[in-house]
Amino acid sequence: MRSTLRGRALFALAVAAVAAWSLAPFLWQAITSLKPAAEVAAVPVRYWPSVLDFSSYAQVFKARPFATYIWNSFVVGVGTTALTTALGVCAAYAFSRLGLPGGRAALIGILGLSLFPGTVLIVPLKMLATKAGLLNTRTGLVIAYTALNLPFAIWVLKAFFDRLPRDVEEAAWLDGLSRWQTLWRIVLPLSAPAVATTAILVFIFSWNEFLIAQTLVSRDAARTVPVGIAMLSGVTVYEVPWGQIAAAVVVTTLPVVAMVLAFQRRIVEGLTAGAVKG
């Protein structure tokens, strides 16, 4: 009993250490966002604000249309996630089950494409978007992000589908389900953990993406959060508005954390339901 108590205490300590390590930057941002302007860059460092000052938050929304940015990020994130997951599931299922001629070569080709450094794609992407009239649109971002994320989604989902027992699907055909119905009613419910994980990672990618968003969008109407944060500036070039940046980071991170936690529950549920096999 004593030894397990000690073990648990040690475990809790270890968890606390890792959490502190990972959360420290975010906590620092959160604290910074609540400091009065004078204390943000004070020397020597002031760790705890003398008063809680929420003015940075007000300023962020005044300086830039952050509500619009957040909405844009949300729309682009959800659009990218939905499109990538839908296309990824269909493609991965086809690769996994239909025995397509040249399927292996196609898969390796897809992997090869995804190894291209993103920076190389920036200029061609901009030219394509210009030609297609998708500059300064959220649709343009969704299409670009989906293209970049699909290889990853296909590989993860195919690996998962490969391990699902085939005879369950065959039982479904014998029961009268079509291919599509089998995918929708049998394969997807059994793959919920993999699909949810893929969706979360794609959403986080899209939420954080900077380079392409900066290149394809130059108007507030379609601008996303990471670019918006980078555009916060002080009165002079030499002044960096740390308080506002910190406030923007907090405001834009919390929704993602909330969403991931909500999904997380679904994943855990999916994983336990998956124990059904065997």
Binding site: D167, V168, E170, A171, L174, D175, P189, A273, K277
Partner: peptide
């Protein structure tokens, strides 16, 4: 196609639908 052959197949390792109840498994067809 298999579903129109008017046959039933019992798989060696049963191939039940893991996410459905016994009742739903039986009634699916």
């Amino acid at each position: 196609p298999p579903k129109d052959r008017d046959i039933a197949f019992v798989f060696q390792n049963y191939a039940l639908y893991p996410h459905l109840t016994v009742e739903e498994n039986v009634a699916m067809g």
